[in-house]
Design a protein around this nucleic acid. Sequence first.
DNA 1: CGTATGTGTGCGATAATCGCACTATCCGTG
DNA 2: CACGGATAGTGCGATTATCGCACACATACG
Lengths: 244, 244
Amino acid sequence: MTQTQDEAAPMRAFDMARIEPDSGMSKTLHNGLEILELLAAHPNGLSVSEIAECIGVHRTVAHRLIRTLEAHRLCRRDEYKRISLGAGLVTLSESVEQDLRTLARPILEDLADTVEATAHLVVRESDTTVRAMMVIEPRRSQVHIAFRPGQVHPVNRGSAGLAILSTLPPTADERPEVDRARRLGYAISAGEVVSTTIGISAGVPRRVGGAQAAVGVSVFDATDEARIGAAVAAAARSLGDLLH
Amino acid sequence: MTQTQDEAAPMRAFDMARIEPDSGMSKTLHNGLEILELLAAHPNGLSVSEIAECIGVHRTVAHRLIRTLEAHRLCRRDEYKRISLGAGLVTLSESVEQDLRTLARPILEDLADTVEATAHLVVRESDTTVRAMMVIEPRRSQVHIAFRPGQVHPVNRGSAGLAILSTLPPTADERPEVDRARRLGYAISAGEVVSTTIGISAGVPRRVGGAQAAVGVSVFDATDEARIGAAVAAAARSLGDLLH
DNA sequence: CGTATGTGTGCGATAATCGCACTATCCGTG
DNA sequence: CACGGATAGTGCGATTATCGCACACATACG
C-alpha cells in the first residue's frame, strides 16, 4: 500500500472531549455519533466532504452514515446540501430523565422566582462529571444570569457537583466544601463554573435507579447566603419527596 | 443476490414509526439509533437482553452498541444495570436549530402571555411531517393546554403544518385551508392534532438554508379568531425579521 | 464551453461485526 | 451456606457489513 494517506493526526476541526475508540466499541456507531457531535459544534452546517475529513473517514462512508442519521431525523440537509442536526434529537432529548425534569420544573420555577435568580437542575454523568439538564430564569428580575442546558462540568467544581457529592458518604479525598455542604444542607461556590458568579446548590436525596441530581441557583452576590441556601435546600427536599 | 431476509419478523416490542433499513444505510448505526428510540419509549430503562430482543440482534451485539452509546453519554446504566437515555442527548438537542429557537423564545413568551394560551414553534421535518420544537405556556392563565415538544404530525393536519404550507407556492392537491391561510396570514384547525382544541398558527417567512417553521397557539375556543390570528401572524413576522 | 468542486452509486477486497462458547456476577431458595 | 437460575460481560474465529476505489452526475464559475 504505497498510496495510503498517512496523514499523521487527521487534524480535527473540533477539539471537544474526544472519545477514544476503545476496544469493545462499535467503530461504525462511534463514527456516526461523532458526526452528531461535530454537527453540534457547527450550527451553520457542514458538507459531506467536510464531515468526512473532520471525522477521518472516507467521503462515501460519511455519506452512508449521514443517510442513516437522516432517516432517523437526527440530521437534515438544507437545499444546498449542507448538513445540520435534525429535530429528532428534540424528541429523544425529551425522554431523558423525563420524570425528574417534569417534577423539577415547577419547583425550579418557584425557586427562581423567590430568589429572583436563575435556577438549575444538574445530574451526575460519570465519576468525574456532571451535566446541566435544566435552566429556569426568573420571571421578573432586573438582571440575571442565563446559560444553556447541556454544559458539562467536573463534579468537584461548582456548587452543583459539590452538592451531589454531599449526598454521598464522605470520602478521603473530597474537598472540605463537600463536608461543609453536608452540614449546611447546601453547597456554595464562587467563580468555579463562571467567573464572577456564585452558585448555591443542594443535592436531591438519593433514590434507587435514579440519577444523582442537584438543584440550585446562580447569583451575583451571596450576602443573602443563608436565606438563599435555605430556599435551595427546601427545593431539593421537596423534589426528593416527589420522587419518593 | 437478494438480501437474505432473516427469519420471519423478529417480533418487535415497540411499534413506533419503524424505519426500514433501506439499502445504502449503515446497519450498525441504524441498530444503535434504534436502541435510542427504544429507550425513549421505556422511561424505566431496559436490560441488555431486553434491548437485544426488541431490536432483533444478538445479545452481545446489543452489548457492544450500548457500550458505545454509553461512552458518548447517550445512554447510562443505573446501579442495577438497567439502561436508559443519557444526558448527552440534552447537549445535542440544544444545538438543533439553535438560532431559530433562541430568537423564537422571547417571541413565543410574548405571544403566550398576550393570548393567554400555550404557544408553539413547529418545524418541517420531511415532505409529509412536521415536528414541535418548542412549547411555551402562558405565565398566568386559569387553565391552558400543555404538551411536550418532539411530537410529530402530518404536515397537512393541524394549523402549524397548514401554516407552513401556506408559505410555499400553491400546489394542485393542497387543502383549501392552505390557501385560506395564505390570504388570511394565519391557519386555523380544530381537533386535528388534539381533539377539542383549536390551533392557530402562522408560517415564518422562508429563509435560505433554514428550516421551514411556524409559530402559533393552542386555544379552547376561537371566538377571538381574528385577534388571535393577528397576534400569531405578527409573531411569525417579527421572528422572520429577526432571521433576516 | 470546459474546468473545478462536490455529491451520489456500484461493487469487490478487506476489516469490522456477529455470534458461539465460556466465565463472572447477582439473587432467591432449599 | 451451597446451589441453581438468570443475566451480564469477554475472547475469538467465521461471516458479512463496511470501506473506499472508480465512475457518473450536478452545480458553480470564468
